[in-house]
Nucleic acid binder design. Structure first.
Length: 703
DNA sequence: AAAAAAG
């Protein structure tokens, strides 16, 4: 409480930060919904996180709870459960709840929260710099300019004075000012010297323990001195990213045409026919040429990579021990229900253990996570080096995934395997406060499971050092090579240990990964499981030709069945709208998309997983990798544009040999396009006209 | 259009 002296700081900081104009406290929420959501959510997130999923996972979260007590005050939270965050909601009147948010301002109560804002703590950051790694960062070094210009301000530090403001926390309000932050950096950090600020922290009384145990190391960190390097960053942004436009890298892609050669290099095992090569990339030059205009992209089937094929027969009878997995891990795998290796696991594990770069393709739900997770842990065990379990050790393995949910899911599989041999994992994803992630890193972690954005963020902050990472996994590798992901992924891979092992996995692994393969992999072995085609699939595909105006009604009829249903929409807004309409129709439904804050995303997905809700409407954020037991029906409210998207979406059902049905709703006008897409995906689907009330729909719903 | 940092 004492810390909260709104009055004292309210004025200043705000003004300062307001310099930008647009970022006034008041305007924040107005101008940026997303922002608003996040700002307030910061608080929420913790609550939600802890409530929803963490309860069991992290003891750490429990520690904090005391702080959260305030949460209890929020009746609002109870109400919201369903719609709280939905900014979009604006549309939905029902969201009336939101006002509550406004209420939150009550934050005053939440002294604790105040703590969180602790991001304010960042001063710590300063300390962290110690990540000796920095030196390694070199990659980022490019940004020398920055240092000079931006940070100099450190001297100014007068800013710090402001900090004391912590009391203000209301300051939080200030936060919104995120834009300002740059300023902050300069002002706040300089203070590092002053650190008196820390003294202030004490406020964190709640966390006394922590401070003592975790941070102690801070003292050690002479490294800090090193940080100065941070100065460079500003430049970075400017210098490095701009390049995106240039995308010279892309230019490389054209190389696809070469690929054939590749196949030559390797044993001419067998022409891939899984993904018929509809087009060659001979016209690469053209592509690169008009990168500016860049058409959304046609759904092209890239040539398939040549692969060593394993059959179920080859794998049968093999045990984990046969593959080279140790006893402790084997016990854990069996405890997790993986009695014996699946084909894709039998195929890739030996090569991964041998230290080779591996490309693995196994259909959706075939066990890819364990295929790379188990041998990765085994490799870390075999190469402990001097790392031991020292606090503050640098991570030695990295698993990158395209979505936060997938990263967290992978962690749920890999963590127990790692723990069975005494290794630690942590997820480094966005949308959630970074504090826990960073403190976990400081304690020392062996395997980092992450999404690209937060990883880059922490690297830039000097809090994550990947220089000791000698095994890197790209899950959904082909997707990680798509437009928005490729470059961050390239930068991240560059920051890992030179010559480190790289593992690329996906159900739709094609030559789209060529750029990365060429740049980072060395003589990779490619594996896939034979017989995993449509013919052997346990998924039934149906295409319904409908009138646009009947879509909602038909979806209601389809989703009204008993089993779990996952509905895909192309846009966030439509996903949200559909979820609302289903609820209005008396069908409990929830949504999952990027407009929700992370706590809600996590919770909503869990609603489906736990069975509290049987219908989830999602964007393609849920298309890849997400595993929910027993989804019996997948409805594509909007047809996908890409055949790979179709395969991944439909792969949410029919997992591990179970049966499932995929219904795609299209207008007659789209019939031709749909047929072509199905052809590329090599899927045979029955197509028929349908209208609300039709028998077909009732039969599908019954499934 | 979506996702990934934050905004």
């Amino acid at each position: 409480m004492p810390n909260f002296d709104k009055k004292s700081d309210s004025g200043r900081p705000a003004k300062k930060y307001n310099s930008t104009g647009a970022s006034k406290p008041g305007s924040r929420s107005e101008g940026h919904r997303g922002f608003h959501a996040d700002a307030a959510p910061a608080k929420k997130r913790w609550n939600a996180d802890e409530r929803a999923s963490r309860t069991g996972d992290r003891p750490a979260s429990n520690d904090r709870r005391p702080n959260w007590t305030p949460t209890n005050d929020r009746p609002a939270s109870n109400d919201r459960p369903s719609y709280g965050d939905r900014a979009q909601r604006t549309e939905r009147p029902s969201y009336g709840d939101r006002p509550q948010r406004t209420e939150r301002p009550s934050y005053g109560d939440r002294p604790q929260r105040t703590e969180r804002p602790s991001y304010g703590d960042r001063p710590q950051r300063t300390e962290r710099p110690s990540y000796g790694a920095r030196t390694e960062r070199p990659a980022y070094n490019d940004r020398p300019a920055r240092t000079s210009s931006e940070r100099p301000s450190y001297n100014d530090r007068p800013a710090r004075t402001e900090r004391p403001a912590y009391n203000d926390r209301p300051a939080r309000t200030e936060r919104p000012a995120y834009n300002d932050r740059p300023a902050r950096t300069s002002s706040e950090r300089p203070s590092y010297n002053d650190r008196p600020a820390r003294t202030e922290r004490p406020a964190y009384n709640d966390r006394p323990a922590r401070t003592s145990s975790e941070r102690p190391s801070y003292n050690d960190r002479p490294a800090r001195t090193e940080r100065p390097a941070y100065n460079d960053r500003p430049a970075r942004t400017s210098s490095e990213r701009p390049s995106y436009n240039d995308r010279p890298a892309r230019t490389e892609r054209p190389t696809y045409s070469d690929r054939p050669q590749r196949s030559d290099d390797r044993a001419p095992r067998r022409e891939s026919d899984y993904y018929p090569a509809k087009r060659e990339f001979g016209n690469d030059s053209q592509r690169t040429g008009h990168s500016a205009g860049f058409q959304p992209h046609e759904d092209v089937v890239l040539e398939r990579l040549e692969a060593k094929v394993i059959t179920a027969g080859d794998a049968s009878g093999k045990t984990w021990a046969d593959l080279g997995i140790g006893d402790n891990m084997t016990r854990q795998l069996i405890a997790m229900g993986a009695e014996t290796p699946f084909p894709i696991q039998a195929a890739t594990i030996p090569d991964v253990l041998a230290g080779k770069d591996v490309l693995g393709r196994g259909k959706t739900g075939s066990g890819k996570t364990i295929a790379f997770g188990a041998p990765l842990v085994e490799r870390l065990m075999e190469n402990m080096g001097g790392a031991g379990r020292k606090p503050g050790r640098k991570p030695r393995a990295l698993i990158l995934a395209p979505t936060r949910e997938l990263a967290m899911q992978i962690d749920r599989t890999v963590q127990p395997i790692a723990r069975s041999v005494g290794l630690f994992t942590t997820t480094i994803v966005g949308g959630v406060p970074q504090f826990k992630q960073v403190s976990t890193l400081q304690r020392g972690v062996d395997i980092v499971i992450a999404t690209p954005g937060r990883v880059e963020d922490l690297i830039e902050q000097g809090r994550l050092d990947l220089s000791e990472v000698f095994v890197t996994v790209l899950d959904e590798a082909d997707h990680m090579c798509d437009l928005g992901f490729l470059e961050p992924v390239q930068r991240i891979l560059e920051s890992t240990k030179k010559g480190g092992q790289k593992l690329l996995f996906s159900a739709t692994l094609d030559k789209g990964v060529a750029t990365l393969v060429k740049q980072f992999l060395k003589d990779p072995s490619v594996h896939e499981v034979a017989g995993e085609d449509q013919a052997s699939s346990t998924i039934d595909h149906k295409v319904l030709l409908i009138e646009q105006r009947d879509k909602t009604r038909i979806i209601e009829e389809l989703a009204g069945g008993e089993g779990k249903t996952l509905i895909f929409a192309r846009t966030r807004a439509f996903a949200e709208q559909l979820a609302d309409q289903l609820e209005d129709a008396g069908i409990p439904a929830t949504s999952l998309h990027g407009d929700l804050n992370q706590s809600r995303r996590t919770r909503n997905l869990q609603l489906l997983t736990s069975g509290r809700v049987n219908v989830l409407v999602a964007t393609d954020v849920a298309a890849r990798g997400i595993h929910v037991d027993d989804i019996s029906l997948v409805i594509q409210a909007d047809a996908p544009d890409e055949y790979k998207t179709y395969l991944h979406r439909s792969g949410r059902t029919g997992r591990a040999g179970k049966v499932g049905t995929v219904v795609t709703l299209i207008s007659k006008a789209r019939r031709r396009r749909m047929d072509e897409l199905l052809g590329r995906a090599e899927i045979k689907a029955s197509v028929e006209m349908a209208a609300p009330g039709d028998r077909v729909i009732g039969e599908l719903a019954a499934l």
